[in-house]
Design a protein around this nucleic acid. Structure first.
Ligand SMILES: [Mn+2]
Ligand SMILES: [Mn+2]
Ligand SMILES: [Mn+2]
Ligand SMILES: [Mn+2]
Lengths: 237, 237
DNA sequence: ATATTTTTTTAGACTAGCCTAAAATGAACC
DNA sequence: GGTTCATTTTAGGCTAGTCTAAAAAAATAT
């Protein structure tokens, strides 16, 4: 169907479309169905994302447009067609299911799995993915808390907010991360701020917005605003 | 390290090297350490195996020779270097471990897994493969009875013979197949001639060498010589 | 409104892997 | 020995994906 490379471009365009949405301050967002028409994505942004040069991106955009996977007009940026969006979500579905496999079954850490899944996602066999999904027990989210799109390309974006906007006295549960870098994930693991950890917000420092929190009724920990605004939480329930 | 394509060529050359050994009549063979120097493999044979043209093979042979993976002299055929042999065995190791995963964990039939493993084998991460191996319980053979090379490229070729040379009255156990086509495997499954099935040789028809056998103390079945000489067995024990 | 800067596209070239057609070599036959 | 046939290699060309450098368009600044 589509090449390895085409799939990576589609995924990049989808991810950039998503990034341009979402509230900048971290307050709750439903994020359900990509509300209105998404903003067009820039050539340069895609180039950075797929680690190539703008000229190469332009070439590929022409090809994807020919295949009706994107809407593209010179100099005007690019958006996914419905077909393109479905294709992208299918790749993301495969990526996240493999990540669950690597963490739950093979025992990898959540900071180690991204690049492996980046390769595994390109093995395109619906039967394989469906069987894998069943074997994993139909997980709803990947090891980073990101939702796994279903067969039809439906995504359940869970309603959540960043830890940085939580108020003192509140208890919340970690549901995901906004930053996926290996070093950030390793740091979170070290302080115990992992998926499903319970967090009691004890104090919010007005000056630098740093936080004093208690994790899982045990460890009192200081974290910076920079960390807090990259951790997603939802009200205990 | 090596590309997808290079890996497929290495595997093809290794397989053809193996094929040129082994006794033609099906009698027991140890097959342990590729006894003496293997016969050189022809360009045309490789071309057929990787489904390409001889001219393309010649191009690739030059590249593999540059990389010291094969011994190659124009018109003289080709053999693997020690490095090349290790690389090939490593790919085979990955292929067979993925096949075990697909059959044992995901529930695929033994006739369905080859082409999927053909893609999965190219995801090269030693850590992934070691963890997969442990997760599968360190299997010694793949779903077709073929041995899984270890880390260092050692293969335990089990001593076995074809069902066609078994004598009347003997009881043997199915340990593998020589033919891996999907239709053959499906046929074997239908008649119950699967891995570890116990076979009592009841009668050997002198005229056409067809066999009358009892499978697992239950079903009496006729099979042709053509089938019998593609099924590997070893003495019950 | 013009000039400057940034972004994007075009032009032309490169590599990996593949092809067909033609030339070279080796094996088989007489 | 020489002739014929099969195998292998070379020559030249194609596509996908990449690159650099230059041209074109859009955005920004004065
Ligand atoms: Mn990828
Ligand atoms: Mn993830
Ligand atoms: Mn392969
Ligand atoms: Mn196998």
């Amino acid at each position: 169907m589509h090449s390895f490379t085409e799939e990576n471009y589609l995924k990049a365009i989808y991810a950039l479309t998503q990034k341009s949405e979402g509230s900048p301050d971290g307050s709750p967002v439903s994020l359900s169905g990509a509300s209105s028409d998404p903003l067009p994505v820039n050539t340069n942004a895609i180039a950075e994302r797929v680690a190539t040069k703008a000229a190469s991106v332009t070439d590929m955009l022409k090809k994807l447009a020919d295949k009706q996977l994107i809407h593209y007009q010179k100099y005007q940026g690019v958006t996914l067609t419905e077909t393109g969006r479905k294709a992208a979500l299918n790749i993301i579905r495969r990526h996240r299911l493999w990540e669950v496999f690597l963490v739950d079954k093979l025992g990898f850490g959540w900071h180690e799995v991204h690049s492996l899944a980046e390769e595994l996602e390109h093995i395109r066999s619906d039967e394989l993915i469906d069987k894998l999904e069943a074997f994993l027990g139909n997980p709803q989210v990947d090891p980073h808390g990101d939702p796994i799109p279903d067969h039809a390309g439906q995504v359940r974006h869970p309603v959540s907010q960043t830890l940085s906007v939580t108020e003192a006295g509140q208890t919340v549960v970690v549901t995901g991360v906004l930053e996926h870098s290996s070093s950030f994930l390793q740091y979170l693991e070290k302080i115990g701020l992992v998926l499903n950890a319970e967090v009691l917000m004890r104090e919010l420092n007005q000056f630098d917005k740093s936080l004093f929190i208690r994790i899982n009724h045990q460890s009192d920990t200081f974290i910076s605003h920079e960390v807090a605004r990259n951790v997603l939480v939802s009200g205990k329930g």
